[in-house]
Design a protein around this nucleic acid. Structure first.
Lengths: 341, 341
DNA sequence: CTGTTAGCGCATTCAG
DNA sequence: CTGAATGCGCTAACAG
């Protein structure tokens, strides 16, 4: 007895077949009316849509993934969502993908390549049509995995020589150097750093330190605290710098959220910014510190990164040509100076 | 010619059958060795695992969803991820779910029930095993949809009389009243509010205003700005209050991030907190303002909410009994007083 | 403990 | 423009 579930449980989740019966057409016509309306008469499409409504049919995307070749699923891996500087990127990205009929599988990697790898192996079972990774630091197993499956991959928020596939970001070394150049031009020579333990943040800092050293500035005191970036991290890092008597003329922070903490602590100690002490941040538009009158910061256009990633992925998926056009986009950054000097 | 893809494309993605051939067992044994190891001999399991390794097999979860009854997918809907007060909740939730073999489908609703509904209809096609919604405000269509599919639903970060299914949150009205009680006890009578346009934030504020009015306090000035909550919102809202000369003795903010903006603006204008002006916030542990020495705030244990949700979902899925045990948990909140008075 | 059989719900061939 | 056949890769049910 080859009885379908829909026969057995008339009250169960309706399938294409149920809709087809109600509409008086074949199942495939229903499929087409829904997925490629241009291949179907207006009249039949309307009948199908009516049947969909009366049955309460919701297409089973797992079946669709299996039969077709697309899952309409996009995986996005972030280090964390806490006070994330990726907020604008993710919002823009998911908005565009949702618009294109894609759903978003979220993975939180905790700044840890091994965790990323574990997540990746799990998520690839879902056969996503593309994947967005934060950063360019991955285990060899992850690289092999991604090379094997051959889906479009975007590495975001960083730049590197040999990307896995596509790359949309900016140079964290360039950020560090730009900050150094700015600080030197302003006459700051005693610089300190508060950073979370995040590879990109640390690279910005190292690059800053290196550039300052080259110009003969004083050695830079650095406080590194565990992720995620919170205001508390900024406060605590700044306190430690003060205890060491090492805060200098300017505190450079790994993110705007951390900078907020430094500003708060400074205010509570009666240190005025930027007169007694300057503070620098880093982040995107919706990030904590923008529009702060006394905080100079490096702004990244996160939303643009998100939109760019979405378009790159969708374009790659649309074209049948498997040739990986090596998109490698440096979106750059912008120094936003906000002090009275 | 019933040739399987794995026959046609020896280089294509390996399937269960490929693994079975290599291991010298039947496909179902591979399936069991991977999914329910306890049903299989140690020896055969090892052979299967070795074969998995050599083939590079990754189970196709779409096929699994279709054949089995579980998708191992959980949908999580948030208003936004920008400066989210849900960060701790999401982190704890996804951590626990990942541990249990679940993957997370992310939906961003933008505080909009209609957008939530559209997302819901799309996501239900993926047949998630459960779904987590933020808040209790949903369209009737969403409610009907969820009632029909019958999967476990958790509404988070709020309380209401008739939840869809399970509920883990706290009363925003109670928060408003607690803040009112505290402010009155401290002798504040001239209160102002800066809030984003978020249903729960507004309910906290309304409840505060009502409670203050009952006690004969002055009318409360309110500035409501569009979501998402940013530091800029706090600055701008506070500026407007000052322009109206309506900031009073204490500014109550819809979130810690907003409070940060108020604090920053106050500092830049030389207003000392809490002497000239007190500021109140709201948020979870990792939120912007905690550990601020001069900010009194309402703390919510977001991580606990996340863990509770995860356990509730997993328990409901584990038990075959479809009876919806109406979990309705008030996790409460905590007033953290940080001022010198 | 292992294998056999029979679909899960849909989309891609091909025909008409 | 519509329909019929077929199988995507896997697991549930039953046998052995």
């Amino acid at each position: 007895m080859n009885r379908r579930q829909s026969d057995r449980h008339p009250t169960g989740t309706p399938t294409l077949i149920d809709v087809a019966k109600v509409a008086g057409v074949s199942p495939i016509t229903v499929s087409r009316a829904l997925g490629r309306p241009e291949l179907v008469t207006d009249a039949t499409r309307r009948r199908v849509l009516a049947a969909v409504r009366t049955t309460g049919y919701v297409p089973n995307l797992a079946a669709g993934s299996l039969a077709g070749r697309r899952s309409r699923l996009m995986a996005i891996f972030l280090p964390t969502i806490a006070n994330s500087i990726f907020a604008d990127t993710v919002q823009a990205l998911t908005d565009r993908l949702a618009e294109a009929g894609y759903q978003t599988l979220l993975g939180l990697t905790g700044y840890c390549p091994e965790q990323e790898q574990a997540l990746l192996e799990a998520v690839l079972g879902r056969r996503p049509d593309g994947i967005v990774l934060t950063g360019t630091e991955h285990t060899q197993a992850s690289r092999d995995c991604l090379a094997r499956v051959g889906i479009p991959v975007v590495e975001a928020w960083d730049l590197c020589e040999r990307p896995l596939d596509m790359l949309v970001g900016f140079s964290h070394e360039a950020v560090g150097r730009a900050v150094a150049r700015y600080l030197l031009s302003k006459g700051y020579r005693r610089v300190s750093v508060v950073s979370i333990d995040d590879p990109r943040g640390l690279r910005r800092c190292c690059s800053l330190i290196e550039a300052m050293a080259e110009q003969g500035a004083d050695p830079i005191a650095m406080e590194v605290l565990p992720a995620p970036a919170t205001v508390a991290v900024g406060r605590q890092g700044f306190c430690r710098l003060l205890e060491r008597n090492a805060a200098g003329d300017v505190v450079v922070c790994s993110s705007d959220t951390v900078a907020q903490g430094v500003l708060a602590e400074a205010a509570s100690r009666g240190l005025s910014v930027p007169e007694h002490l300057a503070v620098m941040g880093f982040g995107d538009l919706s990030s904590a510190a923008h529009s702060h009158p006394t905080l100079t910061t490096v702004r990244v256009d996160g939303a643009r990164i998100g939109r760019t990633i979405a378009e790159a992925l969708l374009a790659r998926i649309a074209e049948p040509g498997q040739a990986r056009a090596p998109l490698r986009l440096d979106v750059g950054f912008e120094l936003i100076v906000r002090d009275s000097t």
